[in-house]
Amino acid sequence: MAVLLIAEVTNGELAMDATAKALTAAKALGDVTVLAAGAHAASAGEAAAKLDGVAKVLVAEDASLGHRLAEATAALIAGLADDYEHIVAPATTDAKNVMPRVAALLDVMVISDVSGVVDGSTFERPIYAGNAVQTVKSSDAKKVVTIRTSTFDAAGEGGAASVDTVPVGDNPGLSEWVEDKVAESDRPELTSAGVVVSGGRGVGSEEDFHLIEKLADKLGAAVGASRAAVDSGYAPNDWQVGQTGKVVAPDLYIAVGISGAIQHLAGMKDSKVIVAINKDEEAPIFQVADYGLVADLFTAVPELTEKLD
């Protein structure tokens, strides 16, 4: 059975981690063709061709596909759908924007944020902020699926798939890109980092959030935040971890000044080791933490950062 995997393409380059993890899930469903679409997508296509288990790569380049504008991208994918039984993408914000639109164009349900593949039509997905896991069986002829990447290992390299280009239809002209405000950072990407240090409302201010960032930089970690920290302006929105933010599963997650609301736990409870620093010993975060430190973060974090020298 044939699978069309939508590569995550950011500014013309392949987002390797997200694509390779979704590929692992896609391989369980059949022969995988990867679609790299964008204003520039050729080099992303070349990179995808080297992934192990990719049978074929399609490249679609057109200005209308830049910045993954939903209308043009969904029309392209729906136009290619005839040849595939599964259309799969990593559950990034780009794919969450596009894939439900693809599904509706094909008159099928979308199956979002899949955390397990049981068989070609049966999938597991978390619901209620991860408080329950539902197994659903699709009766649709085509399955449009987004993959929760934190639960799959990345496919390796070593492939040598052929690369073809595909024509792009007319631009529906419904939307246009205006600007991106993307923070430049040398830190690892939040969803693929091995170590994440997150700060919550307890950190108290944007200035003091540098304590979190310093500790993260010592550990070569990505920086995360609770929603309360983001809403209070201590940290940018793309650092938010949780039900409505990013889902992470690093080897080590350090939660500092975070109480542990279920909506936050939804984004990090699959981390291998969880460390919590909180001055309130009753904080619910300690119920999921492997190591808990009841301490004032303003003494504990600088001390820890220093000891790591």
């Binding site: 910045h67 914000t93 002209g173 419904l174 890109w177 993307v182 929105n237 793309d238 990013k246």
Partner: peptide, 14 residues
Amino acid sequence: TREVDGGLQTIKVK
């Protein structure tokens, strides 16, 4: 203005 993985994106829609 949309909240996306990398930060914020602004688009103009009809």
